[in-house]
Structure formats: structure tokens, C-alpha cells
Nucleic acid binder design. Structure first.
Lengths: 219, 219
DNA sequence: TGTATCCGATACATAGTTGTATCGTAAAAC
DNA sequence: GTTTTACGATACAACTATGTATCGGATACA
């Protein structure tokens, strides 16, 4: 009976799921640290506290695991942005100052690149996408989704604050995402700690946000 | 006597230099295509039309070659920007329309990411820099140099055209570089051809350039 | 023409990685 | 409590890449 309740594989034990998750987590770390190609299956297993037997019992190959991991990361990012957008829309009020109204967007984007490991992992996924059409399509689609979310926030802020923009919300969102990512990569490259990394990307984003705003009083 | 003229190694034959260059060129291609780790020394040699004997006769290891290659690429980029800046400054006149005054900057930046292979190679260098402090320092320094060049152009254009900017030329240059690179990566990911890639990045850059300009008449 | 030198090719020893096949054990089913 | 099943560990075979040591030939030079 329980088998009918579960959607996919009824036989998979709960402990097996834990093993999969541990392997995925370990893989995320190792892939970020040394890159997919330099990461041996054994290194991933060592990190997870298993041997390769566990690995091949759970995954076809390293590539298959990477594909699944990419999907998970992408979903998490999109979902995090979406939920933030949902929160903000339901609350309706933006009680931040006009000057740093875009702090909300920082919060939204924080979900994507908040620490060095995330930056590295996303960079790894991105460079694989550059070389693999399938991954590229998935990557671009996920990014478009995030862009929609950010554009929505931009629109909402504009409406709530009576802000006029010099470009469309889509364009603003796209530029913000690009700058955000670039700044995060540079910060990570400088070897700064997580909070400093966050501070730098925020500063850069604030600058861009300011640029997109059309302020008739003080241009 | 000729030995005294040459700077470094007097004994290196001209043909040896050609071999080195061929290996470096081949390596650039292969590294871009599959990444440094996945690129075997033999694959590089095959592409160059040599065997590994030639490789190890000319380079310590794959890493050493990559380091040298990175240096060359970085120098070329910086030098290209610098020479463009030099040209523009010496000429003095900017006969482009105010609307697309920043087409000049596109020209300047074109040297850095004009085709898919360059985008891939720079992405590879960037992700290595993310994982290696020495490379990171070199990368950031090279980028700072480019930023200075672009900022100089921005300043010159502003002066020549009587344009006011909403941010400092340095900030404008930094954002432009970030957006330029991000756009180039996305375009390359879409699998578009070289000229379409160029068109997309130009469009994105024009948008940012427009944002940085403060036009009192039509804000 | 003979000789020396240089440079790239070839051969080989070694290490590391992958995937599979088998085994042992712990938990589930009866 | 016994049997069965599932899951991860272990052992193994094949492959690939690396780096070194040696070889052969072309080129420069006398």
C-alpha cells in the first residue's frame, strides 16, 4: 500500500535517500573546489564518508550526478526568488527608504550568490553550460525565470514608491543580474569573507539600481 | 653576436619558437573547447601536429603552459585596449553621433570577447583564477588595467561631446565591463554566430552606456 | 663531405581513475 | 527466528594520462 503512495521508486529506503543527499552535498563542495573534471568520484565519496560502491549504487556516473545537482541548484535559486517575490507581493508595503529601496532586490538576489562556494559552483555550472547545448538551454531558462522575478520586484517597487525608470523592468532586471553575478565573482576572486563579499555585490547593485531610476528632481 | 641581440635564450632556434607558438595556439583551442582539466597533453599535441615529445621539450607541464598562455592573452587584451585608447587620444576628434558615441567603447571592448573561442578561453581563465590566488591577482590586475583604459575613453567622450555622467568614469567603466562580459557569455551560450554574438553584446552595452549618461533635456 | 648539435618522435614505466562484479551485513518481511 | 532483500564495501580488470629516457633525423657548421 505504501508503495502506491510514493510517486517514483517505492522500494527506496529513507536511508538511501540520505545517502544520495550526502553524496550530492559532498559533490557540490568538491565540484566547487576543484571543478567537475578534476573531481574524482572517489574524492566525492571520501567527502561524503562513503566508498565508491555507494556512489555507483546511487548514480550512473559523475556526469549524471552533476546533471541532477545542477537541476537542484537551479530549482532552489528560482524557488527562493519566487518565494521572496510572493512574500513581498502579499505584504504589499515597502517600508524601506526610497534611497535604498533596492535593498529588497539585494535580498532577493542574495539567495543566488551569498558565499564563495555558491559562486564557484555556479561558475562551474555556467562553464559547463557554455560547452553543452542542453545544459545551456536549462541554464538560460532558469536565468530567465529569475529575471522575471526580479523584474516583478522592480515593477512593484516602482509602483509603490512612484519611481520612474529609464529602462523597462526587464532590462533593468537583466542588467542587475549580470552586474550582480560579475561583482560576486570578482569579490570571490579577491578572497574576501562571506559578509564582505555580500557587501561588495550589494554596493555594485545599488549603483546600478540608482542608474535605472529616473529622478526628475535630482538627476 | 646575434646571441647578444636576443634578449632571453640565444640558443632557441626560430623553428623552436614556431613550435612553441603552435603548441600555445593549439592549447588555447583545446582548453577553450573542453577545459584545462579535460584537455590531455596529447590532445593539445595532436591539434598542433606534434607528439608529446615536442611538448615536454618546450614546457614543464600543462599547468606551466596554461600560465604562459594566460599571460599572453592578458597582455594582448590590455595592449589592444591601450593601443585603441592611444589612437583615439591622438586623433582627438570623435566624429560619431552623440547617440552612439559609445560605439567607440564597443570597438575597444571588441578586442576582448569577439568570438566564441575567446569567451570560452576567458571563462576558463576566470574560473581558474577563482581557485588560485596567484592567478586571481593577475586576473584582477589585468582587468583593472582594462578598466582604466575604458574609463579614459569615457572621460574623453564626455569631454568631447559635452556629456555629463551620472557616475564616475571608473564606475561607468566597471559596470560596462561586467555587463559586456556577462552578455558575451550568454550570447555564446545561445550558440549564436560571431557577428550575432557581437550584435547582442553591443546592444547590451549601448543600454548601459545610455544609463550612465545624464541628459538634462530628455532624461 | 663529415661531424656535432638540437629538437621532436618513440618507447616505457608508473600512477590514477573508472566501472563492474562480488561479497558481507543490516534491516525488512513473513 | 528465519529468510530474503537491499545497500554499501571490497576487489579487480581495463583504460588513460603523465613524465622520462632514449632514439633518429635534420640542420648548422667546419
Amino acid at each position: 500500500m505504501r508503495a502506491m503512495v510514493d510517486s517514483e521508486a517505492p522500494s527506496t529506503t529513507r536511508s538511501r535517500e540520505r545517502t544520495r543527499r550526502k553524496l550530492l552535498d559532498a559533490a557540490a563542495q568538491v565540484f566547487a573546489e576543484v571543478g567537475l573534471d578534476a573531481a574524482s568520484v572517489e574524492a566525492v565519496c571520501d567527502r561524503a564518508g562513503f566508498t565508491r560502491g555507494a556512489f555507483y549504487s546511487n548514480f550512473e556516473s559523475k556526469d549524471e550526478l552533476f546533471l541532477e545537482l545542477s537541476g537542484i541548484v537551479a530549482n532552489e535559486r528560482v524557488e527562493a526568488v519566487r518565494s521572496r517575490v510572493g512574500e513581498l507581493e502579499s505584504v504589499g508595503g515597502f517600508d524601506t527608504q526610497p534611497a535604498n529601496a533596492f535593498a529588497i532586490i539585494e535580498q532577493v538576489l542574495d539567495v543566488s550568490a551569498d558565499d564563495r562556494l555558491s559562486v564557484l559552483l555556479m561558475s562551474e555550472i555556467r562553464i559547463r553550460a557554455l560547452r553543452n547545448p542542453d545544459l545551456a538551454a536549462a541554464y538560460l531558462q532558469q536565468e530567465a525565470e529569475m529575471q522575471r522575478g526580479v523584474a516583478q520586484i522592480v515593477t512593484d517597487i516602482g509602483r509603490a514608491k512612484g519611481i520612474e525608470f529609464r529602462v523597462s523592468s526587464d532590462e533593468a532586471a537583466r542588467i542587475m543580474l549580470l552586474v550582480w553575478e560579475g561583482a560576486a565573482v570578482r569579490a570571490a576572486m579577491s578572497g574576501v569573507e562571506a559578509d564582505e563579499l555580500r557587501r561588495r555585490t550589494s554596493t555594485e547593485l545599488a549603483l546600478v539600481a540608482q542608474l535605472t531610476i529616473h529622478d526628475p528632481q535630482r538627476p
